[in-house]
Amino acid sequence: MEAVALFSFTASGAGKLSFQKGDIIKVTEMEDDSCWVSAEIQGQRGYVPENYISLLPYPWFAGRVSRLEAEERLHRQDVGVFLVRESESAPGDFSVSVSYGKRVEHFRVLEGGGQYCIWDESFRSLNRLVDFYRAHSIAVEKVVRLRDPPSAAPPPPSQPDRNPYPNPYRSISQDSPPSARLGPSQRAPEPVAGKPRLAQALCDYTPPQTAHLHFLRGDLIDLLDCSDSRAWRGRCRGRVGIFPPEYVQPLFH
């Protein structure tokens, strides 16, 4: 799948990829409980922070649905109506399920060297593969071209809260990137009575902006101003700056 970079990112360690805001990134694998996704950029493979990117909206991508569920969705659809799903038998791979009218056929997408293929033709992304088989038959024994269902509505504008790879970061400016997505067990602090004076960092926050406060997971932060729900102001390691409250746990003593 393809995604667009919401922010620029400079890799700070081995196995990670750098990119610029607006770059198109090919996502090759994703995990529900990880802050990082496997991706490819200009032939280089590595990891990128999942909340720096937004999956491009494609109504045909069904995500993690089973073979049986795909058949139920495509049952008695017009010939060529299809969906792309993550493979059950080979995690990280993809399958294309296609209606043949009275039955559904499944095509495994083979991947190697950054190329995707079903038959002889290879493509740099799933999107290009799908576009090719819209104009050419995906079947060998008869002509079957991929097509959207007649009732398919145009995809809505991409919104971070509706994105399959959500970006839970909320900031004053979209130019202010997060450091890494909080895990599912790490929620934004619930409002409680009283004003906290200290907070503990739940994860690293190292944005390039000088006005933002840099801190590492576990750091204690003196809270100076918590009046803005989008950005708090605090002191850590002798520096003062703003930061997203989702990244810290207030301490009440």
Rank of each mutant, 00 (worst) to 15 (best):
A70V: 03
R73K: 11
G43P: 03
W60Y: 13
E86P: 00
Q44D: 11
I53T: 01
Y47A: 01
S38M: 12
G46C: 02
Y58M: 12
E86W: 05
V37Q: 01
S89A: 14
G43K: 10
W60S: 10
R45L: 03
L55V: 15
G46Q: 02
Y58E: 15
E86S: 11
D78E: 14
R45Q: 15
I53S: 01
S89T: 10
F82I: 12
P57C: 05
R45Y: 03
P49M: 05
S89C: 08
E71A: 09
P59D: 14
F82N: 10
I53C: 07
A62P: 05
S54T: 02
A70M: 14
E50H: 12
L56D: 08
E72T: 05
L83T: 11
S38C: 13
E86A: 03
H75N: 12
G43L: 02
P59E: 08
P59L: 08
E50S: 15
R73A: 08
L55K: 12
V81Y: 07
N51R: 01
I41T: 01
G43C: 03
L56N: 02
G43I: 06
S54P: 00
V65R: 07
R67Y: 07
Q44E: 12
I41R: 04
P59R: 14
E72I: 03
E71G: 11
L55E: 10
G46T: 00
A62E: 14
V79D: 09
E71S: 08
V37F: 00
R64M: 12
V65D: 00
E50F: 04
S87H: 01
V79F: 02
A39S: 09
A70F: 04
S66A: 06
A39H: 03
G80C: 02
R76M: 10
P59F: 10
S89F: 11
V48F: 00
Y58D: 15
N51H: 08
V48R: 05
R76C: 11
E50L: 14
V48T: 05
V79G: 05
V79Y: 06
P49S: 02
L83H: 10
V37S: 02
Y47V: 07
R76F: 13
E86G: 07
E72W: 06
S87V: 05
F61A: 07
L74C: 04
Q44K: 14
R67A: 08
G80T: 01
L83D: 08
F61N: 04
E40L: 00
L56K: 13
Q77R: 15
G63T: 06
I53W: 03
P57K: 10
E71R: 09
V81R: 04
S87E: 03
A62Y: 04
V79Q: 15
W60D: 10
L56C: 03
A90P: 11
Q77H: 08
G46F: 01
R45M: 11
R76A: 09
S54L: 06
E40K: 05
L74D: 06
Y58N: 14
N51F: 00
L55Q: 13
E88G: 05
F82C: 12
S54K: 06
S38K: 12
Q42N: 15
R73F: 14
E71F: 10
S87N: 11
V84H: 07
G80I: 01
